[in-house]
């Protein structure tokens, strides 16, 4: 290597380092509603993790003497027909919602990312086959597809996760295929090819990191949708089955007593609403904060 030339760009000449993280936080946290959503999700996480220690009763602990008790000190939100404490059931239901939501969204994200990146990168026939299949899956509304699968597979938490995953994969595949196609067009991918990088290296090191942002946004937003879908399936009775507790089945159980004891349906219903709403708000917020075109407008 020859001798060093005159240094043209010194450290001091380059603009001071822009702290992306700080900038991200500023935009993300600028909206008040984000704080509320974050609080709800934090509460969900906390109850899901520490549920057994927080809940005053076991989720299936019957006490027929206390059947249909109104809210009191003993039972914060009252009890159902079997005298099971609603508040405790809500806490255990948070656990189910989170497990199903997280497991489903991560599995479908991983599967969808792999399929989407392969389809986008290889193009041609591979792309046609994968994407047409995904289009076919997408032809069904997510809930219908999940219903169908849950019907075939039967109920239970694992089967619900599988059904919802299959229903969610097409969305991720389509996103990642599109992202890969657009990132692939950049000169830096051409540059990587010109220096002799292998296709695998290009995919893993250069395409994947550049598709992460929309991926994170989709992951968050879809969590809400998955939790809602799980609740719907449980409401219809083909989702989570006892002894597991789910908000959806709680709504279903309680709605026979809507006239006399509305809290039985309303309490889990409000929980579902708050959580889904919060995930959507956070997803929107992430998108705004991560999108460079919107950055700096707040």
């Amino acid at each position: 290597m020859p001798e060093a030339k005159v240094i043209v760009a010194k450290e001091a000449d380059v603009e001071p380092r822009i702290n992306e993280w700080k900038r991200f936080c500023r935009v993300f946290l600028a909206r008040k509603i984000i704080w509320l959503a974050l609080f709800v999700i934090a509460l969900l996480l906390f109850t899901a993790v520490f549920g057994p220690w927080l809940a005053p009763y076991k989720p299936n602990e019957q006490n027929l003497a206390d059947s249909m008790a109104p809210p009191s000190r003993k039972h914060l939100l009252g009890t159902d027909r079997l005298g099971i404490d609603t508040f405790s059931r809500l806490i255990y239901g948070a656990r189910t919602a989170l497990i199903v939501g997280v497991a489903t969204s991560f599995t479908s994200a991983i599967v969808g990312t792999l399929l989407g990146m392969v389809a986008g990168f290889m193009g041609g026939v591979v792309n046609t086959v994968i994407m047409r299949f995904m289009d076919a899956l997408m032809g069904f509304p997510m809930i219908v597809l999940a219903l169908l699968l849950a019907g075939v597979l039967g109920s239970g938490m694992l089967n619900i996760i599988i059904a919802l995953t299959v229903a969610n994969v097409p969305g991720y595949t389509r996103l990642m295929c599109g992202m890969t196609l657009s990132v692939k067009e950049n000169d830096y991918i051409m540059a990587q090819r010109s220096i002799g990088s292998s296709s695998f290296r290009i995919l893993a090191k250069h395409i994947f990191p550049n598709t992460l942002q929309p991926m994170v946004v989709m992951l968050t937003t879809s969590l809400g949708g998955i939790i809602l879908a799980e609740a719907s399936l449980s409401f219809l009775g083909i989702g989570i089955v006892p002894p597991d507790v789910a908000w959806g089945s709680m709504v279903a159980d309680g709605y026979k007593y809507l006239q006399t004891n509305p809290i039985l349906s309303f309490a889990p219903g409000i929980c579902i609403m708050l959580v889904v709403f919060s995930f959507n708000i956070i997803g929107d917020g992430l998108r705004d904060a991560l999108d460079p075109r919107l950055r700096g407008t707040l």
């Binding site: 290597m1 020859p2 060093a4 030339k5 005159v6 240094i7 043209v8 760009a9 010194k10 450290e11 380059v14």
Partner: peptide, 9 residues
């Protein structure tokens, strides 16, 4: 250095 950039960058 060859292309005139400070290695600190």
């Amino acid at each position: 250095q060859l292309v005139g950039l400070d290695p600190a960058l």
